[in-house]
Design a protein around this nucleic acid. Structure first.
Lengths: 224, 224, 224, 224
DNA sequence: GATGAATGAGGTTTCATTCAT
DNA sequence: CATGAATGAAACCTCATTCAT
């Protein structure tokens, strides 16, 4: 039992660091200080080991998100939380997303695997948030949720990639703010509002001004 | 010279198909019909070969974008074009992005490589577009361009990933539309416009109405 | 004691199914529901385990044959029984012969082993039958018993080999009949009967003819 | 080319000596004095190597038999030749039959392999001989040729097995004689020949006796 | 009597790379 | 320019066997 944990830990480190292909079982075994063969008595296959590593990371992560998520209300707050939480994954578990995206999601067999289920559960919070917002009329209905999901997770991953190699640091608080702002900014209920309303607004303001001018002139006239 | 080209072509095919790790030099050589050793007289290393392959793809791609880009004006149009063009890469060269993202951008040495430069040049169009828009006051100034860049490219990549394995097809025209809409929706100059403007607009309309009423009453008064 | 039996039983199944090389101690242990290590507290070595398995099969087999054999009289009946019994082994214990022939009888150390003794005892019935037949003048004396033993057992094994993989079924009754017929057909007492008897027969006929001729001539002489 | 031959030669030796499972590629490579990997540049797989080894033995063997066989006439001579030739294989290529029988003919996939074809070709001479003999009425028609084939090859293999480990030597000339005698002894056209001929012989003897008696009586008559 | 953790050597196979010709 | 033979290291995985508890 303890050995299994040690191996799992070592595997986690090395997998996250070098990816699946880049890691070797012998390296993992060496890190634990055991013989290669022993690894196979706990995990029948290198890939099984990877699976268990990822499950061991996903499961508590999802549980943690679930708890916080249930205590948060409102589209904006929830969205901000999910973005912020995903950013934190990169800071606290650099490489998890890399692994998941780039080495597990390889080939069509992925879509039947446990990992796929876990990833769906992980991203379900966002999807649920967006769907509820749509149902309650808080955001536009003509939006492709898949697209948004990709933008959030893909965007974050892209943004944080460099930080995995020490290229620049990211302030996750302000990044989360901005991210939320951008995503939500385009989602509020009135479609096309920004473009047309700005025009209308300008027109109206001008009209108002003219009217007031006329009023003033007339007042002057009258006051005489 | 022609041999170098043949090898490059074969390498391109196989790298795109199987990735860097999945390809073997012998396979590439076999495709050309030469011996493994000959490959090394043109390209000192497997990785150098990959580099050259990618350069050979990036350079015309960038040139192509450059041309079209220079003929397009306006933030929205340019943004839409860049998004659409990147989507097209996934459709026309599935595997290029896979390669770039998941096998080249691995490890810190990437950031000193030629590939990094090329990628910067590739994404510079977007950065330039956004900067000009900011300078001309078309979009908000409080936006992190890096963040946007990641959202665009990361989001697209995330979205299209599944399609590389035949999981669902994506209509790049409508996707480009939506993408542009979402990205731009949150960028127009007046922050918070959507939420407040509706209120302001109502206020203004009411104000205008009151003003006109006042004007009418005054006119009646005067006319007497 | 009971554990030893359980292990022996599991080992028997797996050895017969997969052969010595194809079986693994861990598999055997797993079948019993114990740990690999426990197997070694009963059987010092994998090969020892195999030995015991085979002994446990040979001993009752030999006893069974002994009983029936003692109740059967006559060369033909006994021979037919031994052939038929050996054929039955292939049907009832497919894999025993495979094991014995192809995985035990490997290398010179076999000839000092207990297995060799058992196999000698197993085939002794045939040898004894043939020897008694010779002594009683029922079959030719110029026959190499070893040769016959090989023909019977080797031939049967060769014939039945394919059936172990489902290639064709064999009717052991008619096969036993034919086999007995063939083997015995060439063993009856008059050696070279086919070749020499024809000659003798011719001689005799000629002798007879001459005699009759003489008789005729004499009759003519007398009649005068 | 020469290396391929060297490797083939080494593989032949080791395979014949230790069987397929008992041999290791590293051992073969070591025998040639090359690195393990080089073997795989000539033979893609250990099993392919085995295949080629066996083909390289079978093909000239079959050709050799074909030549001699075509110059030999008569059932007995041909049968004797085929038996003798197979015995010689054991003396000259000890282990070939072991390999073929016990390590290649393992599992049902064998029956689709090239080796199976070769083995069929090898044993075809015997089958053809027996069939022609049947057609020409030289041997009994009620015989199962498969059974005979098994008896000949299986019997020989069984008989010679021990000699592979130095257990006793076999004189292949006399063994071939006896073998032929036994096999053919039971095959001649008149089944139960011994029984009937004995009867005829008795008749003839009685006739002769009667004739002599007549002669004696006549002689007495004359002498008076 | 039984466990389960651990070993160590071995297996087949793949590949980037080198170099004499 | 091109070959092809060769290397050497590493990969994943299997297993008989041992031993402290």
């Amino acid at each position: 039992m303890r050995r299994a944990q040690e191996i799992l830990g070592a595997a986690r480190q090395i997998f996250l660091e070098k990816g699946f292909g880049g890691a070797s079982v012998s390296e993992i075994a060496a890190k634990v200080g055991v013989v290669e063969g022993l690894v196979y008595s706990y995990y029948p296959t290198k890939r099984d080991l990877l699976n268990d590593v990822l499950c061991a990371m996903y499961v508590p992560l999802i549980r943690d998100i679930e708890e916080s998520f249930s205590r948060i209300q409102g589209v904006r707050s929830r969205l901000r939380f999910l973005i912020w939480r995903h950013l934190r994954v990169f800071v606290e578990e650099p490489g998890l997303s890399r692994l998941v995206l780039h080495e597990v999601r390889t080939g069509p067999e992925y879509f039947q695997s446990v990992l796929h289920d876990l990833h769906v559960r992980y991203t379900t919070f966002l999807v649920r948030t967006l769907q509820e917002a749509i149902e309650q009329g808080e955001i536009r209905t003509d939006i492709d949720i898949e697209l948004l999901r990709s933008m959030v997770y893909g965007g974050i991953e892209h943004r944080m990639w460099g930080t995995l190699f020490g290229r620049g640091a990211v302030d996750i608080e302000s990044t989360a703010d901005q991210y939320t702002q951008i995503v939500l900014g385009s989602l509020i209920s009135t479609p096309q509002v920004s473009a047309t309303m700005a025009g209308e607004s300008a027109n109206m303001a001008q009209l108002l001004q003219e009217t007031r001018d006329r009023l003033d002139r007339m007042a002057q006239l009258v006051s005489k």
